[in-house]
């Protein structure tokens, strides 16, 4: 039996072009859907598999506006059992403030009877890419943390985690309870099932309103990088373009 917490973040599903709101504080999401990142989808899948294998409880948590309940429901559709929303009024919280709020929630869950053996997160948020919330949470809770994990085995109260490096793998071991941040590729997430959709709506979402701590990293504004669109030189249509394409390969010296 084990209790697993997964932390996810609501981000806009950006297509191929990003536009900003006039105050440059947010991505203009009027025409976008929201989702959570590939790393976090894998964290959810990993948690669901662990509970299927070992038994126990899985909880999904996010910090964000009321609208973030949508991604909590999505995660519960995939098999997470219940959810916690750390509700914020506006804007992104920096990594220090986010970590402090998660720590508070973990302690509240423990006080209410759910002590987590494993806290899973994505290696980095898809949007802000801060690379630190997991480590900050682990530090305050006094837990070990392994990041960037692409293979995880729970063995005798130990997390055995592999991280991909040039030419192979680095293996880390950490006794549970632990924080592990994962990368896409650790598993292949399942598709939501109809039954999952139906049951997710009945699963509970607990709400907390955390105090915003001072994290010390202050967003001034977003900037869209100057666009480097080139106009592609069209070599031709269909199979008839092959000779020109092979000429190109020859010119580049790769043939």
């Amino acid at each position: 039996m084990m209790n697993v917490l997964v932390c996810i973040k609501r981000v806009p599903a950006t297509g191929s072009r990003i536009t900003l709101t006039p105050d440059e504080q947010e991505i203009d999401a009027r025409y976008l859907n929201f989702t959570f990142s590939p790393h976090e989808e894998c964290a959810v899948e990993e948690a669901v598999r662990l509970i299927e294998a070992h038994g126990g409880t899985s909880v999904v948590l996010t910090l964000g506006p009321d609208a973030a309940t949508d991604i909590l429901v999505d995660a519960m559709t995939l098999g997470m059992e219940r959810a916690v929303l750390l509700e914020t009024e506006s804007g992104d919280w920096d990594p220090g403030a986010t970590a402090a709020a998660i720590v508070e929630a973990v302690r509240a869950q423990q006080a209410a009877g759910t002590a987590f053996d494993l806290i899973l997160m994505g290696n980095e948020a898809a949007d802000t890419g801060d690379y630190q919330v997991g480590i900050r949470v682990a530090h305050v809770l006094g837990l070990p943390c392994v990041t960037g994990v692409k293979e995880l085995k729970i063995d005798n109260g130990n997390a055995v985690a592999r991280r991909e490096v040039k030419g192979g793998w680095e293996v880390f071991e950490a006794p549970l309870p632990a924080v592990v941040t994962v990368k896409e590729g650790i598993n292949l997430p399942r598709y939501p099932s109809l039954r999952g959709r139906l049951t997710a709506k009945k699963k509970p979402i607990e709400r907390m309103k955390p105090q915003r701590a001072h994290g010390g990293l202050e967003k001034v504004r977003f900037k869209v990088p100057p666009e480097q669109t080139s106009v592609a030189e069209v070599l031709g249509k269909g199979a008839e373009a092959a000779p020109l394409a092979v000429d190109l390969l020859q010119r580049l010296g790769v043939l």
Partner: peptide
Amino acid sequence: CWGGTLWEEARIH
């Protein structure tokens, strides 16, 4: 941010 497709100006205190 966003894997390099968006930039953020930020102050480190």
